[in-house]
Design a protein around this nucleic acid. Sequence first.
DNA 1: GTGAAAGCGCTAACAG
DNA 2: CTGTTAGCGCTTTCAC
Lengths: 310, 310
Amino acid sequence: MNKSGGKKATMKDIAKAAQVSVATVSYVLNNVSGQTIPGETRQRVLDAASELNYVPNLAARSLSKRQSGLAGILVNRQPDEQWWERAAYTPFIDAMERELTSLGYHVVLSSLDAKAPNMDIIAERKLDAVFVLGALQDTFHQISRHFPTGVPLVAIDSPIEDPLFYRVQYDYERAALAATEQNSKPCSFLVADRGSMDAAAQLGTLLSLPPSQVLVLETEDQLQPFLARQTGDGIILNEYVGLLASRWMNPTRYTVLCTAGTPELLHSLPRSSSVLFEDRKHLAALELMQSLRNDSYSGPPDKCVLIKPR
Amino acid sequence: MNKSGGKKATMKDIAKAAQVSVATVSYVLNNVSGQTIPGETRQRVLDAASELNYVPNLAARSLSKRQSGLAGILVNRQPDEQWWERAAYTPFIDAMERELTSLGYHVVLSSLDAKAPNMDIIAERKLDAVFVLGALQDTFHQISRHFPTGVPLVAIDSPIEDPLFYRVQYDYERAALAATEQNSKPCSFLVADRGSMDAAAQLGTLLSLPPSQVLVLETEDQLQPFLARQTGDGIILNEYVGLLASRWMNPTRYTVLCTAGTPELLHSLPRSSSVLFEDRKHLAALELMQSLRNDSYSGPPDKCVLIKPR
DNA sequence: GTGAAAGCGCTAACAG
DNA sequence: CTGTTAGCGCTTTCAC
C-alpha cells in the first residue's frame, strides 16, 4: 500500500502519473487562485498525489518562495542557569509553540549562549518570525549589528532599552503595588531571580529599599541567610523561588509575584499570597509579531507591551 | 558597515568579489576535504565572505545535500493536558534541545494533537532525527502507516509495544522497589500522572495493589479524596503531584518517584523522601539515535533503554 | 486551461 | 588547483 521504502514522490512523479505538467500539479495542490482548473484534471492530480503518498518538500518551497514557514524561539542561556530560572521560561515557550504551531508555523527552538549569542539561525533558516527570551542589553548589541532587518523580532522578558526592538514583559511595578496593598503591611525585602534583575532594581527603588534588602538569587544557598536576616514582610519574584523560601520563612510573610507562569505551584503552600499576571504574554508577543508583519511602515502602536497583574 | 537593508549575499556574490567560481567558494567555505586550495585564494574567498556578511542559506543546502540539519522533538498533547503533566515534559525537552543544538542540529519543536497526530513534518522538513514524547499506542499506529523509513526515530516516555520503534523510559519497577525498601513500611497506595499510567498499572500489579488503591490523576481535585481514604504509606509519581499531595497528607507518608526531572522541587518539603533517576534520559535518547544512524543494518543493542533510579 | 522554462542558493561530479 | 554544469523540488511568469 505504501512504498515507504522507496524514494519520496515529487511533483514530477505526480505530473507523470496524472498526465499533466508540474505547473498544473502545483496549481492544484496549492489551490492557486487565478488559475482555473477543470474539476476533472484537478481530481486526477489529487488522486495521483494521495496515491503516491505525496508530501511536499518544504525546503524546496522555501527556496522559491522567500518564506521558510519557520518561526524561531531563541532562549538566552546563562552558563550557570539554575533550575528555577529554566522552569520560568518553559511555560512561555510551551504556550508560544502551541500558538505558532496552530497558526501553521513550524517552530525552531534554540538556546543562545549568553556569552556569545549566535543568531545566525535567523538568516540561515530564513525565519519568518523570531522571539527572543531573556536577552540582555549587550546580547542585543551583538545582534543589531548584522541581522536581517525586516524580520519581525520581538524580545520577551528582555531588559533592553534599544528602541529598535519590540518587547513584551511583565508590569512589575503594578504587580508590586498590588502586592503591597494586598498585604496591608509595608514591604521590607525583595527576592528575585536573575531573569528579573532589572525589575528588582526598579522595584527596589520604587519601594525605596536599601540594596541590602534586595536579593538577586544566584544560587540556592543564598536564600536562607538572606531570609534569616529579615524581620518584616516582603515580595518574592518567581513562584519556584517562593516555594524554596517557604522552607526558611513562613509563607504568610511574603507575597509571590508569579513570574514563572505556574501559579498553581503555590497551591501547595496554604495561606500564601500571590499576585498573578494576565495569561497573555504569548498572545501579546504574537500580536506584536503580526502587526510587525503588516504595518512594517508605521510599526505597531506600542513598542513595549506590559503584561498587567490580575 | 553592514548593508542589512539590501539583499542577502550569496555564494555567487562572493565568487564575483573574490574572482573565483562558486564551486571554489563552496570548497573553501565548507573546508571540503580532498580539495586543496592555495592559501591565497582561500583567504580572498574568506575575506569576501565576511566582507559581504555572508550567511549560507540552509534551505538551499538541504535541498542539494539530502540532509536538513534539523532534529525534531514532537510532543504528544492531550487536549486537557494538566500543568503538572506539561511541566513533566519540559526538563527533557530542554535538555534535549541543548544537546542537539550543541551537536549542531537545529531543533524543531512541535506539539502533536493526540487525537490526530500529524507527523508530516518529518517528511516535509526532512528531519534528520526525531524524538517523540508521550506517544500512545494508537498514536503510533497512525504513524507507522506511512512515514519515511530510515529516519532515526526514538520514542520517549511512550507506552508502546511496537517493536518497530526504539524507546527510552524510566525503570519504574526498580524505582518502586527502591522506594519500598527505602521506606521500611509496605506500600499501600499509588498515585501517578497520566503520562505514567502504564507504569501505574504495572506497579499496581507488582505491589499487588487493588485498583481502588491506584489513582491515575486526571484533575487536581481527585487527589484530596483519594488521599483522605488512605491509612498506609504510598508512592507518588511526578514531583509536582508529590508537592500537591503535601497539602493533604504528611509527606513522610509517601515516597515520590521523580519522574518530572525536577527533584529540587522537593527541597521545599522537609523530611520528604524521594527516588531520583539517573539524569540521562536525553543522553540515552541521543545515543539510541546515533546508533540508529550508523548501525541501521543491525540496529542498536537494545530496542528499549530503561533509565535506572540512583 | 496548460505547459515550458527560468530561477531560488547550494553541492558535487566531472572536466580541464 | 579551479571552473562548468547538472541537478535538488518547487514556484511562477509567460506563452500557447
